[in-house]
């Protein structure tokens, strides 16, 4: 069995260690005896989303995001078909704008997204920081991440991916962050999200591997997260 991953716009996006997510997925799938084929697609390329099991895009500065959004905007129908077919989308950092609605830049320019998600974005001053969050309705497991962004988002009508315990949500004072719709995982958390959060990695690997999935044993990722959580707990006391 072979798992096919489509990596979107690697020359524009994925400049914040986002490759870590691909490394983690590939490593886990190999450990389960599955082949993993990663294909890149860029501006102007054919993107048969339904032929892939997972579609991934990583963080980018606005200079990289805007050409990618312009290329993605007319692909709504193909994206919708893939979403309805249960394909997994993982979008980290500013890449979540690819599937969202309009992005309003500081100078008033409006850039269209693919409008698969009912959310709109706005360019604002830069925010950086760390997030500690839970998954709404999915227990008390804590998820960790970082953001470094110049965007805020209105996504009130979408199901959030995270509920923040600490750090900023979709916009200042918002407690919800990201979107979880069908199999779309979209979050402003940037970089190696799946390495930082092995639970999320296992969730995706289980969906991809189906009956061949086996939980993994010890991992440095999980130990690193446990160490970080212990440090946070100590700080709280």
């Amino acid at each position: 069995m072979s798992i096919r991953i489509l990596l979107l716009y690697p020359e524009h996006m994925g400049l914040s260690g986002d490759k870590g997510n691909i490394f983690a997925l590939r490593h886990r799938l190999h450990a389960l005896g599955l082949r993993c084929e990663v294909t890149s697609a860029s501006v102007g390329d054919a993107m048969p989303f339904r032929e892939y099991d997972l579609i991934y895009a990583g963080n980018a500065p606005l200079s990289g995001l805007l050409p990618a959004m312009a290329d993605m905007a007319p692909r709504t129908e193909a994206l919708r078909a893939a979403m309805d077919a249960g394909r997994i989308f993982l979008l980290t950092g500013s890449a979540r704008c690819l599937l969202g609605g309009d992005l309003t830049l500081r100078d008033g320019t409006v850039v269209h997204g693919a409008r698969l998600l009912a959310e709109s974005h706005r360019e604002v001053n830069r925010f950086t920081g760390e997030i500690i969050a839970t998954r709404p309705g999915l227990g008390r497991t804590l998820y960790l991440g970082c953001y470094d962004r110049v965007l805020e988002t209105d996504a009130a009508s979408e199901r959030p991916l995270f509920q923040t315990v600490r750090g900023m949500g979709d916009k200042p004072a918002a407690i919800y962050e990201g979107v979880f719709k069908n199999n779309i995982y979209a979050t402003y958390m940037l970089g190696p999200l799946l390495v930082r959060n092995p639970e999320l990695l296992e969730e995706l690997v289980e969906k991809l591997a189906g009956g061949q999935y086996r939980p993994r044993g010890e991992s440095f990722d999980a130990e690193a997260k446990a160490l970080r959580l212990a440090a946070l707990e100590k700080k709280k006391r």
Binding site: S16, G17, D18, T128, C146, D148, G191, V195, R196
Partner: peptide
């Protein structure tokens, strides 16, 4: 700080 848990650089 404020990105003390940022491990992104390891993956670049």
């Amino acid at each position: 700080l404020p990105m003390s848990a940022d491990i992104s650089w390891l993956y670049d």
